[in-house]
Simulated assay, not measured.
Amino acid sequence: DSEVFINDKKTDNSEVFWNPTPDIKQWRLIRHTVKFEEQGDFESEKLWQRVTRAINAKDQTEATQEKYVLEEAQRQAARDRKTKSEEWICKLFELDSLTGEWHYKFADTRPWDPLNDMIQFEKDGVIQTKVKHRTPMVSVPKMKHKPTRQQKKVAKGYSSPEPDIQDSSGSEAQSVKPNTRRKKGIELGDIQNSIESIKQTQEEIKRNIMALRNHLVSSTPATDYFLQQKDYFIIFLLILLQVIINFMFK
């Protein structure tokens, strides 16, 4: 309940590290102890009462002797259990097989909820928390299993259920799928090749039209802006060929 200071050796300055003000003392948890007559034989206060009495009386010899008596009794009990092949089962602690350390079984490590948690207390060595209301248990509806056709026939008394037709058809469908996929792949490849050839033909037609136009422009006098009859006929044939190709591969 006194102040704690920190001293800096370099600067020799002292600062307050802990100061239990009246406000802090007001929020201190109230200590509750079990009555001596209600404690079990292995409770610390009851088990070590003679050692505590000797320490308070400043009798170091008596305290050491009483401590030796308690520890020797524990060693003898351990030897007896080993002889009888009995295993000591701890009530409140359990051994971690990985770290080899003992841990408290009923440790409540969840965060404190000020809206629901009221007080935390210990009863029979178990840490418990008194809450305003319990968290409701959410029940999950069970999935109802719908019996299949085969199970219905077995339930009616058929000695040998008929084979499931869907399974056989499904397996056949699975065996057919790879062939159909190969056929589709081949057809798609043929279509792509045809499209590429059509594109090349269209490019050639465009080049021919441009070449014909350039030839007509270069061969026709500057004063004559009209094409001859054969030129119109060639252009008509090229356009007709383009329309037919587009219609066939549309």
Rank of each mutant, 00 (worst) to 15 (best):
residue 145 H to K: 06
residue 82 K to W: 10
residue 39 Q to A: 14
residue 19 N to P: 03
residue 112 W to D: 00
residue 239 I to S: 09
residue 168 S to V: 15
residue 202 Q to R: 05
residue 102 W to R: 04
residue 89 I to E: 14
residue 39 Q to C: 11
residue 4 V to H: 00
residue 99 T to C: 03
residue 39 Q to G: 02
residue 177 K to V: 00
residue 37 E to W: 00
residue 14 S to E: 10
residue 105 K to E: 07
residue 71 E to G: 00
residue 193 N to A: 15
residue 66 E to V: 00
residue 162 E to I: 01
residue 240 L to P: 01
residue 213 R to T: 09
residue 126 V to W: 03
residue 131 V to H: 06
residue 101 E to V: 04
residue 16 V to I: 09
residue 108 D to H: 01
residue 126 V to P: 07
residue 237 L to H: 12
residue 189 G to T: 11
residue 125 G to W: 01
residue 229 Q to L: 05
residue 12 D to C: 13
residue 40 G to P: 03
residue 76 Q to W: 04
residue 65 Q to L: 10
residue 50 R to F: 05
residue 158 Y to V: 01
residue 44 S to A: 15
residue 190 D to A: 15
residue 199 K to N: 12
residue 175 S to I: 07
residue 146 K to V: 10
residue 189 G to N: 14
residue 154 V to C: 02
residue 86 E to T: 03
residue 206 K to L: 03
residue 32 H to I: 15
residue 226 F to K: 12
residue 96 D to G: 05
residue 186 I to A: 06
residue 52 T to R: 13
residue 239 I to Q: 13
residue 66 E to M: 07
residue 100 G to T: 01
residue 235 I to T: 13
residue 212 L to H: 05
residue 14 S to A: 09
residue 146 K to M: 10
residue 136 P to Y: 02
residue 81 R to A: 14
residue 123 K to Q: 11
residue 118 M to N: 08
residue 231 D to S: 06
residue 74 Q to M: 06
residue 213 R to G: 04
residue 125 G to H: 01
residue 162 E to H: 05
residue 94 E to W: 04
residue 177 K to C: 05
residue 79 R to E: 08
residue 106 F to E: 01
residue 239 I to M: 09
residue 84 K to W: 09
residue 243 V to P: 09
residue 31 R to F: 04
residue 163 P to N: 01
residue 122 E to A: 10
residue 158 Y to C: 02
residue 87 E to K: 08
residue 140 V to N: 01
residue 203 E to T: 06
residue 139 S to F: 03
residue 35 K to D: 10
residue 133 H to W: 05
residue 88 W to Q: 06
residue 40 G to H: 03
residue 86 E to P: 01
residue 80 D to H: 02
residue 95 L to G: 00
residue 182 R to Q: 04
residue 243 V to G: 03
residue 218 S to Q: 08
residue 32 H to V: 15
residue 207 R to A: 13
residue 199 K to L: 07
residue 32 H to K: 15
residue 96 D to W: 00
residue 21 T to E: 03
residue 129 T to L: 00
residue 250 K to V: 02
residue 93 F to W: 12
residue 235 I to E: 02
residue 51 V to M: 06
residue 2 S to C: 11
residue 156 K to P: 06
residue 250 K to T: 00
residue 144 K to F: 07
residue 165 I to T: 00
residue 147 P to T: 05
residue 29 L to K: 12
